[in-house]
C-alpha cells in the first residue's frame, strides 16, 4: 500500500524529513503558505518557492470536538468512531505562523509556547487502497 499526499505541492513527499512548501517574496522577504505568486505585505509580484522550517512553537490551539462535514473532510467523520483532533497555529521562527492539525488533542497537554515539530499523519484510504497522508505538528518530546 502506497502512502500518497492529500495534495501535491503542499509538503515535500516522499521525504525522510518532509517540509511544508511556501513562497518567499523576492522584494521584501515575506513568507507565505501555501505557495502564492503575489505578496500581501509589499504587493510585490515575484515570489520564489521555498521549503519552510520544520520546527516552531505553538502560538494558539483548539480541539476539533465534533466531526467536520464530509465532504470536504476526508478523514473519519462518523460520529460513532470520530476522534477529536487538535488544531493550532505553529510559529516558525523568522517565517510565519502555520495553521495545522496537532497530533495531541488533550487540553491538559497543549500549552501555548511549547516546541513543535512537523510530522506526516494518515488521513484516510483512497479508492485505490492507498493511504492518504497530510501534515501535522507534534510536541517535541
Amino acid at each position: 500500500m502506497a502512502r500518497v499526499p492529500v495534495t501535491e505541492g503542499v509538503f515535500t513527499w516522499p521525504s525522510a524529513k518532509p517540509a511544508l512548501i511556501g513562497s518567499r517574496c523576492v522584494k521584501c522577504g515575506n513568507h507565505m503558505f501555501p505557495v502564492q505568486s503575489g505578496c500581501p505585505k509589499c504587493t510585490g509580484d515575484t515570489t520564489e518557492t521555498v521549503e519552510l522550517g520544520r520546527r516552531g512553537t505553538l502560538w494558539t490551539w483548539t480541539v476539533q470536538g465534533f466531526p467536520p462535514k464530509a465532504p470536504p473532510y476526508a478523514g473519519d467523520a462518523d460520529p460513532k468512531t470520530f476522534k477529536a483532533f487538535g488544531v493550532g497555529y505553529v510559529e516558525l521562527p523568522g517565517e510565519l505562523k502555520i495553521e495545522t492539525r496537532l497530533t495531541e488533542a488533550d487540553p491538559e497537554k497543549l500549552k501555548i509556547g511549547m516546541e513543535m515539530e512537523m510530522v506526516i499523519i494518515p488521513l484516510c484510504t483512497d479508492e485505490n487502497g492507498n493511504e492518504v497522508v497530510t501534515f501535522a505538528f507534534a510536541p517535541v518530546a
Binding site: 492529500v6 495534495t7 503542499v10 501555501p34 483548539t62 476539533q64 467536520p68 465532504p71 470536504p72 473532510y73 476526508a74 478523514g75 483532533f85 488544531v87 495553521e99 495545522t100 492539525r101 488521513l123 492518504v132 497530510t134 501534515f135
Partner: peptide, 15 residues
C-alpha cells in the same frame, strides 16, 4: 483555498 485544506479538517470557522 485548496481542496487539501478542507480534506485535512481545517475548513471550520469554529476552529
Amino acid at each position: 483555498l485548496g481542496d487539501w485544506y478542507g480534506a485535512s479538517g481545517l475548513a471550520l470557522t469554529t476552529q
